[in-house]
Each structure stands twice: as structure tokens, then as C-alpha cells.
Computed example of a mutant assay.
Amino acid sequence: MPYLLRATLIALALLSTVSCSSKRLLTPDRSVPVSIQTDRASMQHAIVKTLVARQWTVQKITPQLVQAHITVRGQYHAEIDIPYSADHYRIQYRDSSGLDYKDGKIHKNYIRWVRLLDKGILRELKDHQNEQTAQQLSQSALAKPQ
């Protein structure tokens, strides 16, 4: 009897682990905070720089859209579209393989990759804003006669 109970508990644990690997598809739809002054070119730059830093392959860049894909360990593949404007972007799922996409749910690794992209894009925009502010302050300090 203890053997049967142990086998049942192990089977339940495995089933709960398998069921936890899929989560609802994440589609970040982000408006840039008002405190960050940005334009379309800096938005595109932040998106592309973050994709490259996170090891995504950029497939296509237009003034309104960036398309990219990632393949991890030759086994997991995801494709995304990122439509954007000067003050808004959205990371949209396009296709995948090996990530068990079904009924609006996908493997938790995809969710993590998209969250990291979202955070990275915002960080890039903030860093760009800080860089511009520092340059303006430096230029105005140099322009003042002492």
C-alpha cells in the first residue's frame, strides 16, 4: 500500500509541474511615462538595442514596426512584432515552436523573455533621457562665461 500511495503522489507532483509550465500569453501594451521625452527614432533605437542585448534576431525594421525572433538551444523558437510610435509600443506574439502555444497559453519561458524585453525597452528610454539631460546641462555650463 505505501508503494501505491507513493506512486500516486509522485504522479500528482509531476502533473502539477507540467501544468504550471504554461501561462496566459503576455502582450505588454506600454505607453511611455510623460516624464520620458522621446520621439519615434529614439523609440526604435531603444527597441532594437534591447532586442540585440537580449539576443533576439531583428528581422525587419520599419518606421512603425520591428519584427524579431529568438531561438534558444535550437529547441525553443518565438517570433514577435513590436508596433510602436513616439510614445507607445506593444510586444505582440506572432508565432512559436517548442513553446506549447495553445488556447492563449504558452510556456513560461516566453513570458519571461517578453517581460525582460519590456523592462529593457523602458530602461533604454530612461537611459537615453538621462543622457540627453546630462548633455544639455554640460553644454549650458560650458556656454556660461565664468
Rank of each mutant, 00 (worst) to 15 (best):
residue 9 L to T: 06
residue 100 D to Y: 13
residue 141 A to G: 07
residue 141 A to K: 14
residue 128 H to Y: 11
residue 141 A to N: 12
residue 50 T to Y: 03
residue 22 S to E: 08
residue 31 S to P: 08
residue 49 K to M: 13
residue 49 K to Y: 05
residue 85 S to I: 03
residue 137 L to W: 12
residue 43 M to L: 01
residue 42 S to M: 09
residue 72 V to E: 04
residue 143 A to Q: 06
residue 11 A to C: 13
residue 132 Q to P: 03
residue 34 V to W: 03
residue 137 L to C: 07
residue 101 Y to I: 09
residue 26 L to A: 09
residue 134 A to V: 06
residue 112 R to H: 11
residue 24 R to C: 08
residue 21 S to Q: 14
residue 66 V to M: 03
residue 41 A to C: 06
residue 17 T to N: 13
residue 125 L to Q: 03
residue 91 I to Y: 00
residue 55 Q to I: 10
residue 95 D to F: 05
residue 47 I to S: 02
residue 20 C to E: 12
residue 49 K to I: 07
residue 65 L to Y: 02
residue 138 S to C: 07
residue 44 Q to R: 15
residue 137 L to N: 12
residue 85 S to E: 07
residue 59 Q to W: 05
residue 110 Y to L: 05
residue 136 Q to T: 09
residue 31 S to C: 08
residue 131 E to M: 08
residue 143 A to C: 02
residue 126 K to M: 02
residue 107 H to K: 02
residue 51 L to W: 02
residue 120 G to M: 01
residue 124 E to T: 05
residue 84 Y to N: 08
residue 105 K to D: 11
residue 81 D to Y: 04
residue 61 I to P: 12
residue 90 R to L: 13
residue 55 Q to K: 15
residue 51 L to Y: 01
residue 85 S to M: 02
residue 30 R to W: 07
residue 5 L to D: 11
residue 97 S to N: 11
residue 121 I to A: 02
residue 113 W to Q: 01
residue 56 W to E: 01
residue 89 Y to V: 00
residue 75 Q to K: 13
residue 112 R to Q: 12
residue 50 T to L: 01
residue 56 W to C: 01
residue 141 A to V: 13
residue 140 S to I: 13
residue 122 L to G: 07
residue 79 E to H: 07
residue 92 Q to C: 07
residue 136 Q to I: 07
residue 68 A to H: 08
residue 13 A to F: 12
residue 58 V to I: 07
residue 117 L to Q: 01
residue 139 Q to Y: 11
residue 145 P to A: 11
residue 55 Q to E: 12
residue 71 T to P: 03
residue 141 A to Q: 15
residue 84 Y to Q: 07
residue 16 S to K: 08
residue 24 R to E: 15
residue 39 D to R: 04
residue 4 L to F: 14
residue 48 V to E: 11
residue 134 A to H: 13
residue 64 Q to L: 05
residue 62 T to K: 07
residue 117 L to G: 02
residue 108 K to F: 15
residue 94 R to M: 08
residue 36 I to F: 00
residue 18 V to W: 14
residue 17 T to C: 10
residue 35 S to H: 12
residue 98 G to W: 04
residue 131 E to G: 09
residue 97 S to V: 06
residue 97 S to E: 07
residue 89 Y to R: 05
residue 58 V to W: 00
residue 85 S to Q: 06
residue 114 V to D: 05
residue 88 H to Y: 02
residue 76 Y to M: 13
residue 26 L to H: 10
residue 73 R to M: 08
residue 133 T to S: 06
residue 60 K to V: 09
residue 43 M to Y: 00
residue 36 I to W: 01
residue 142 L to K: 10
residue 6 R to E: 15
residue 44 Q to H: 10
residue 58 V to H: 03
residue 60 K to F: 12
residue 115 R to Q: 05
residue 121 I to M: 03
residue 70 I to G: 05
residue 53 A to Y: 01
residue 73 R to F: 10
residue 27 T to Y: 03
residue 75 Q to E: 11
residue 93 Y to K: 02
residue 112 R to M: 05
residue 118 D to Y: 02
residue 130 N to P: 04
residue 87 D to F: 05
residue 52 V to Y: 03
residue 3 Y to L: 15
residue 20 C to L: 15
residue 27 T to W: 00
residue 91 I to K: 01
residue 135 Q to T: 12
residue 25 L to P: 00
residue 85 S to R: 07
residue 125 L to F: 04
residue 100 D to A: 15
residue 50 T to A: 05
residue 48 V to Y: 02
residue 84 Y to W: 10
residue 88 H to E: 03
residue 2 P to C: 06
residue 59 Q to G: 10
residue 98 G to V: 06
residue 77 H to S: 08
residue 54 R to I: 04
residue 14 L to V: 10
residue 117 L to E: 00
residue 108 K to Y: 15
residue 19 S to Q: 14
residue 35 S to L: 11
